[in-house]
Nucleic acid binder design. Structure first.
Lengths: 337, 337
DNA sequence: TAGTTTTGATAAATCGGTTTAGTAAATGAC
DNA sequence: GTCATTTACTAAACCGATTTATCAAAACTA
């Protein structure tokens, strides 16, 4: 069964393919009712579906965008992607999904691939290692929206959460609950702009409350070494009484580790995580988290991207910062007022 | 900054674009070392990236596949998508992601869109409402792999879990723990083939153990009515002592509802869910679940699809059924042996 | 030396649409 | 009745690659 092309429709309807093309693009002005009906019938009859690849080639427009996230498995990335896909679908775009695994080479390969595929734009939570490429090259050729990342000194559309304020509020809450020794847990060695902001919020909250910062309380962990690191920390003279997990991966690792060690939350240690996940309130100790408006952020990122794609020149770049919401549950203690 | 085309490379290198094309496709046989080097240099210098849209048009191959899932937010869909994307990326394909929300019209629109975009194949967890279309039309034109769905009487590649056996094992486990009144909770009214299989496993387990089936214990719930339905059930003469949640959505709703009603797990009622999610073992009562090999299923689905895309004729269709694994935790009681 | 084969490269057709410039027929103006 | 305008439609160029058929020059054969 050969594919039906426009020329087949044209022949059967007894018109030229130009006319069929006009019909498809709804340029009915100079078309007789009769011709219009005939073309419509033939399209129905043959089940003709125009080839977007050919169309894209001519129009230099693919109606496709790429989204590069570290890992679709992270609750943040999943929810954001869903927001992006929803907005895109409603506006006639499809979404190619790319998982960079925070690997700069993989990210670079994806960027190249998306360019070759002639996507109309890219939404990216970048690793930070390809910033030069993005700044020097991509942004000049292709609409780009940064997601959950900030580039210093750069004019670019961007969507992120106010991580500093979110962390500030979380840490302030802990301090208000009487905590002074607050541990920050960061996965592996990778520091992106969001994590830097959260640490800034942590610092600011300590400072505002006149608490000295102890560098020992900022720890980078992996699945392999978390147990020993936590052990070490709880063995020092002045152990932490609260833990701030800087992302959902850290949260899961910390909770798993504490459970293994039978350290009770919040009796032995208070915990605050980042990103509300579906089961956060069903945990042994329902988890207090700094929530983000993930789905809305995805929608907004797609909105900014498509706006820049469709409106030829917008000079002002939009930096859309969403507030974080502290969702207080029992994991950081019961407030006694 | 205009885009560099093959013709620009050809001009600068002093050859024809045919030769550049040969170079790109690694057909070096009749090409002098010198020409080859010169082309390579010019490509580097100009930063030429071939336009895949043009290439796709000529070759009738886009190196792009579509995946249609109900909702990327479900842990099953997320993990499967990640598996699909990984395999595709390694084999030079990109993935367009589509969320059908179990809405047949939306699904239909996505199928059409993917066809127009000339994707090389589709992986789909179908709603079941477009089966005729898929059977009659799509499968003839396009490689297709069913994911977590079974079509009766149909030759097609397919990847799924052995839901019947998984449910059978789960229910048998509950029975062994002394439960006879086991409630099955199903979200909304939608019954796809996977859910049918799980119910079959439930039925079989009851029958094998000589327990009469009570239709009242099969309930369809939504977020709105779950509270009243659960209330009703626990008010009957012979209330259920265990709950089998047929998917992760049902699981979350049931757990939330039980928590609200302060019904204790497993003391008041035992619970088994489907799909292991990251926090399942961190819950107030760590959840026993029927686990699926989600990531591997995604990889396998992509493998089958790409095989069918790249090998012209494979007559035998592969139906790859993954086993389920019962992961026993405390939510269905402590075994006293 | 003339004819054949090999080597290295190219012109032109093609993929399936969109669009511009153009044309023939019908209508309107005077 | 003639010329200008409008209406309905089409031919052909184009988008940027791939590929086939072809060709010129060099190398080989007899």
């Amino acid at each position: 069964m050969e594919k039906i092309r426009m020329i087949d429709v044209a022949n059967k309807a007894g018109v030229s393919k130009s006319t069929v093309s006009q019909y498809l693009n709804k340029r009915y002005e100079f078309m007789s009712k009769d011709t219009r009906q005939r073309i419509s019938d033939v399209i129905q009859e043959l089940g003709f579906k125009p080839n977007s690849v050919a169309r894209s080639l001519k129009l230099k427009k693919t109606n496709t965008v790429g989204i590069i996230v570290p890992n679709i498995n992270y609750s943040f990335s999943t929810a954001v992607s869903r927001g992006v896909e929803d907005y895109c679908q409603k506006h006639g775009y499809s979404v190619i999904i790319c998982n960079s695994d925070d690997n700069p080479e993989k990210e670079h390969a994806y960027i190249q691939m998306l360019q070759m595929k002639q996507v109309d734009g890219i939404i990216i939570s970048s690793t930070g290692q390809n910033n030069e490429l993005l700044k020097e090259e991509i942004i000049r050729e292709l609409p780009l929206v940064l997601l959950d990342r900030i580039f210093e000194d750069m004019e670019i559309d961007l969507v992120c959460s106010d991580h500093r304020a979110g962390a500030f509020e979380a840490i302030s809450h802990l301090i208000k609950m009487g905590h002074k020794r607050i541990l920050v847990v960061i996965p592996d060695e990778h520091l992106n702009s969001s994590r830097v902001s959260r640490i800034k919020g942590y610092d600011d909250a300590l400072e505002k409350n006149g608490i000295d910062k102890d560098e020992k309380l900022i720890v980078y962990v992996s699945e392999d070494n978390i147990d020993s690191k936590i052990d070490d920390l709880f063995r020092i003279d002045d152990p932490p009484t609260a833990i701030f997990c800087i992302n959902d991966l850290a949260t899961l690792e910390v909770l798993t580790c504490l459970k293994r060690k039978k350290i009770k939350i919040p009796e032995d240690v208070a915990v605050i995580g980042v990103d509300d996940f579906p089961a956060a309130n069903l945990l042994e100790s329902p988890l207090t988290v700094v929530g983000q408006h993930t789905y809305e952020m995805g929608m907004k990122a797609a909105e900014l991207l498509i706006r820049r794609i469709e409106e030829k020149k917008i000079d002002k770049y939009v930096q859309h910062v969403f507030p974080c919401e502290l969702i207080v549950r029992e994991s950081c203690g019961f407030k006694n007022e």
